[in-house]
Design a protein around this nucleic acid. Structure first.
Lengths: 132, 132
DNA sequence: CTTGACTCTGTACTTAGGTACAGGGTTTAT
DNA sequence: ATAAACCCTGTACCTAAGTACAGAGTCAAG
């Protein structure tokens, strides 16, 4: 046979993750373990690799592994629930955006204050944090 | 004596954190333990409480406890270094903002696609994650 | 003088998402 | 037939920022 069997390290390469991460996903039940043949190594299907890629992309959208597990369980046939999950996630992301924006604004102001602080007496940032 | 001694649980209340968190900060060296008197409980100074409040506020600005430790060590007299830290933090926050904004946009589009999906055939979100 | 509230010390546990072995077994290339 | 490369199972460890006790001491009120 010259076709490489789809063993775990090939699967890992195709999915762009490490072998250990695949095993971790198996441990937490996010993906199935392929059947272990009587002799030899477990062989990974294209479907399983698609699932791994799905997981990566869903992670990029901010979903946790637990949420991804739900997404995968719901699958293609439960659009309303999926949409609900996405909407909830969007709300959380928007909240985080709001908080981070406030932080960025404050930091910018503090950094500005430092620039105007030609007197080398104390640091406006420290002062501000002390008594905000 | 009718003045309550500033014991740990009073300090915790004033700083708005839990007793266990104060002890945790002591464990990691972020704050000092007040001297233990020969008999009785440790007494917390106003300075220490100010330090705890500083920590809370710095956390709200996104600084980690490790970074806060540095801020406290640098203190008021090292404005340039403090400003440097704040600038670095701002850059990280801006990156995160950028990433989150992209996520929010994608999620919004996907949710929209679900709304337009009157056909109850499959879910646009799942499809999109599968082959993005 | 006892009871309840508080403190202290030390250690273990938590969450999320992995990473890192050790000690085996199997396969493939030379 | 042997060495390198790979796999498998199980377990321990990592980070960050805490939380949760257990077991012992101390203090204040009634």
């Amino acid at each position: 046979m010259s076709e490489k069997p789809l063993t775990i390290h090939i699967a890992a390469k195709e999915a762009g993750i490490s072998i250990e991460t695949i095993r971790y996903y198996q441990r937490i039940g996010l993906i199935e373990k392929p059947e272990k043949p009587l002799s030899g190594y477990r062989v990974y299907s294209e479907d399983l690799i698609a699932r791994l890629l799905f997981i990566q992309r869903a992670k990029e959208l901010g979903f946790s592994l637990t949420e991804i597990s739900t997404l995968l369980a719901l699958g293609d046939g439960n659009c309303a629930e999926i949409k609900e999950l996405a909407t909830h996630k969007l709300a959380i992301v928007n909240n985080k955006l709001h908080d981070l924006q406030a932080i960025a604004n404050t930091l910018e102001n503090l950094i500005q204050a430092c620039e105007f602080n030609s007197s080398h007496q104390g640091c406006p940032i420290i002062t501000a944090i002390l008594k905000r």
